[in-house]
């Protein structure tokens, strides 16, 4: 029952080696062994998409993938999006568009959106909706998430270097007032 294996895995660019129980899921490995608690667990049966991470550039449900299956793989989680204290344009756009409420599905949603924009830098709203349909969000009704992904796509197209802005711990005085 408690068989162990040694695995080597690169997570967000950092190499790790660890002894893991063979039945341990990748989500648990990330959260418990690496303290990368940004990857959340929603349904534990592969439907809701909350635990989505990229494995070798492809999205997987980390509640269904065993940690040992990630041996030799490169994994990207939400913690890998922001660099040098700057939010990724997707994170900025989610903030500006209020593409989140409780934030629980958000890491999986961001990772899936990242994958979508890698695949297609010029998406339509319909394409984004379809691409996100495997990730459930219980708060937003998806509309502002779709808007955020489209806004991020535009920003990423606008410059080859991401125009990241330093994030502030509290709201800035910038406002996006609307009727």
């Amino acid at each position: 029952m408690s068989e162990h294996r040694r695995i080597a895995v690169v997570v967000n660019g950092t190499p790790y080696e660890a002894e893991v129980e063979t039945r341990k899921y990748l989500a648990e490995f990330l959260r418990e062994d690496l303290s990368l608690v940004g990857t959340h667990i929603g349904c534990e049966h592969g439907v809701c998409g909350t635990c989505t991470v990229l494995m070798n550039g492809v999205s997987v449900r980390s509640c269904l993938v065993l940690a040992v299956q990630a041996n030799g793989a490169e994994v990207m989680t939400v913690e890998g999006l922001a660099t040098d204290g700057q939010m990724h344009p997707l994170q900025e756009a989610f903030r500006e568009k209020q593409g989140l409420q409780c934030g629980y599905c958000t890491p999986g949603m961001l990772v899936r959106a990242y994958e979508l924009l890698e695949e297609n830098p010029e998406p339509t709203a319909e394409w984004v909706r379809e691409g996100l349909a495997n990730n459930l969000c219980r708060c937003t009704g998806y509309q502002y998430i779709v808007e955020a992904v489209l806004a991020a796509a535009e920003r990423l197209r606008g410059s080859s270097v991401a125009e990241g802005q330093p994030f502030e711990p509290a709201t800035s005085s910038r406002t996006n007032q609307e009727a």
Partner: peptide
């Protein structure tokens, strides 16, 4: 419609659930 104060930590995967 100011940006939400809660959001940066949630977006960074540091929600503290």
């Amino acid at each position: 419609s100011i940006q939400r104060i809660e959001d940066p930590r949630l977006l960074l995967g540091r929600g503290g659930y």
